[in-house]
Every structure is written in C-alpha cells, then in structure tokens.
C-alpha cells in the first residue's frame, strides 16, 4: 500500500508541471500586447497607450524565448504572484484565497449527502430492479437530470424563501454579518459554520446553516441524479457476479450479500465519479452561486472570463488544475480500500 501511495504521489509534480506548461502555452497564443495585462499590477498601468504598452512588453521580456518566459512566470507563481484581478479588485491569489472557503463550505455540505444518497438510492434501485422502488428512484433521477439548475434553484428560492421565508439567499443574515465583521468573532477558516463553532457561537452557526440549505439542496439534487444512476448500474452488475451467487449459496443473509459483497464492489465507479464531481464543485457552481447570491469561486471565474480578465482566468485555471491533480490522487489512494487487486497491481 505504501509503495502504491508513493508511486502515485511521485506523479503529482510531473502532472502539475505538464499542466502549467499547457496553461502557459495557451497564454502564449495571445500576442505580447494582450499578455502584458497579466504582468502589470492593474490595467491602470496601460493608461499611457501604445508607447507605454511597448515599454512594458520590453520590461517584462514578452518577446523573449518561450522557456525564458515560462521560467519567469513559474517563478512568479511560486512566489504567489498571479497578477491583479480587475474583476475582484485585488491580486488574483488573494481573490482565490478569499473566495475558496465559501465554495469549499458549499461543497462539503453538498458532497456528503450526495455520495451517501447516491449509494443508498442506487443500491436500493439495483436490488429492487423493475419494482416500484426502482421505478420511483429512476423517475427521481430522470427529473434531476432534466431539471435545469436555474429553474430548480429559482423554484426552491421562490417557495422556501419568497413564500415561506425559511431559507434566505446569501451566506449570512444582516445581523450575523455585523457580528462576524465585529471584533469579537475570530475568523479561523473562512467557513462560516466551522468558524461559528470554533467561536462557540450557535446562533451564527444556525444562521449559516439556514443559508446553506437551498444551495446545498439544489446542488445535491442535480449531482445526485447522475451518481445514483451510476451506482444503480454498478450494483446491478455486481449482483450478477459469481461471487455474489457463491455467497448466497453459502447461506449468507441477503443483507450481508448486498452490503458486503455486492455494494462494496459496486462502489469503485462511484468513487471515480465522486472525485470528479467534487472537482467540478470546487471549480465553482456558477448558476447555483448566482441564484443564491452566494459569492464563491464559480461566480468569480465566470465574471473573470466574461470580462476578459486574463490574470484571473489563468490563476483560476492553475487553481483548478491543482484541484484536479489532488483529487485524482485522493481517488487513486482510495481505490485499494475498495479493491485489494489495485493494491497488488
């Protein structure tokens, strides 16, 4: 297991290096005039017009060979300098760091119910093939697939906020924002729920939970549909295997057969998909964030792209590739827990 983990870990820097090369190569497709914005502190530096732009191109060596420019660029990144984001009015690195906790909090709360729900529903559907339970779950997943996020999200908002006033948009109520902004509340993680608990402030914890419910439910419903279908198919496949038949022939209870023999083996594809799902969520969920007035990385990335905010787009691309690399590693490390053959390979 340790050798397997080391082998997988050794790939991380190589993959990340390749990704930075690709991102930089994409950037190099732009002309020096277009790229100069990623080097200056803010667009105000370009106010002087063509002469100033030419001077900046010279200053930053944007006509130098690829490898020299890549070296300088990666050097800047290693120092945390990703340029200035006009979209966020702050350095890109600072913007990513300040927005990440909001997205992470959403992902944490959405991911656990999605995975557990998908495993449970998919297993139930697989076990009860072509029976009412299976039909019900299939209908539920088809609806989830077909419901556009913005329609589902807006419906949720209109019913549970507009009509009954239970779950407001945003991250905190006004009174809670004042309290969190005040001197008595210490920011540890940027995750409102976690910070509230660490500060021993139950009202703020409950308030932040209240604000999380609608975006989490929206996110869960949409993600749950795809993962449930995969789990169902995988479960059906597992239930047809010889080892399941053998287990039944040995006289094991149906519960043990389903849970220990079939479900565990059916989990492998779900682990893979779950890893990708988390990566997608950590990349930001633009529509959910926009509808629920939840300023996270998704809105930031979308705005940056729409505004041709190159430093922010490139910074986000780097962040997202890092997320993908790390999650792939996590998924790889999880495989042996479910399938010992991976460990031996």
């Amino acid at each position: 297991m340790l050798a397997y983990a080391i082998r997988r870990l050794s790939f991380v820097p190589i993959v990340f290096f390749a990704l930075t090369l690709m991102i930089f190569a994409m950037q190099m497709m732009l002309t020096p005039t277009q790229r100069v914005i990623t080097y200056v502190g803010s667009p105000d530096a370009l106010k002087g017009g063509a002469a100033q732009v030419a001077a900046l191109i010279e200053k930053y060596g944007l006509n130098d060979p690829f490898y020299e420019q890549y070296g300088r660029w990666i050097g800047n990144i290693l120092q945390g300098n990703l340029g200035w984001s006009e979209t966020a009015r702050m350095p890109v690195a600072e913007a990513l760091v300040s927005l990440f906790p909001a997205t992470l909090e959403l992902v944490i709360f959405a991911f656990v119910p999605v995975v557990l729900g998908a495993i449970w529903l998919g297993s139930r559907a697989g076990v009860h093939l072509n029976r009412p339970v299976d039909h019900g779950i299939r209908l539920f997943t088809v609806l989830g697939w077909s419901f556009p996020t913005f329609v589902f999200g807006l419906l949720m908002l209109m019913v549970f906020y507009g009509s009954v006033g239970w779950f407001p948009p945003g991250r905190l109520s006004q009174w809670a924002m004042v309290e969190v902004g005040g001197g008595g509340f210490r920011r540890w993680t940027g995750l409102n729920t976690v910070d509230a608990l660490l500060n021993g402030n139950l009202p703020i914890f409950l308030d932040s939970l209240r604000h999380l419910i609608l975006p989490v439910v929206t996110l869960c419903y949409v993600s749950l549909a795809s993962m449930t279908r995969i789990m169902r198919t995988s479960m059906l496949e597992a239930l047809r295997q010889d080892y399941v038949r053998t287990a039944r022939a040995k006289g094991m209870s149906e519960r043990v057969v389903q849970n220990r023999h079939a479900r565990r083996n059916a989990l492998l594809p779900v682990v893979t998909i779950a890893g990708m799902e988390v990566a997608a969520m950590l990349g930001g969920v633009v529509i959910t964030e926009t509808i629920f007035d939840y300023h996270g990385l998704g809105q930031f990335a979308a705005n940056a792209a729409a505004n041709l905010d190159f430093p922010a787009v490139l910074g986000f691309a780097l962040y997202f590739s890092l997320v993908l690399v790390v999650l792939n590693l996590v998924v790889d490390l999880l495989y042996p827990l479910f399938d010992p053959r991976v460990r031996l390979a």
Binding site: L154, L157, M158, Y161, G162, P168, P169, T290, I291, F292, D293
Partner: peptide
C-alpha cells in the same frame, strides 16, 4: 446581487 429575481425576493 446580479440576479434580478434574487434581489426582488429579498
């Protein structure tokens, strides 16, 4: 708050 419906509901 860029989304009009969200502003209106609030």
């Amino acid at each position: 708050v860029p989304e009009w419906t969200t502003r209106l509901l609030q």
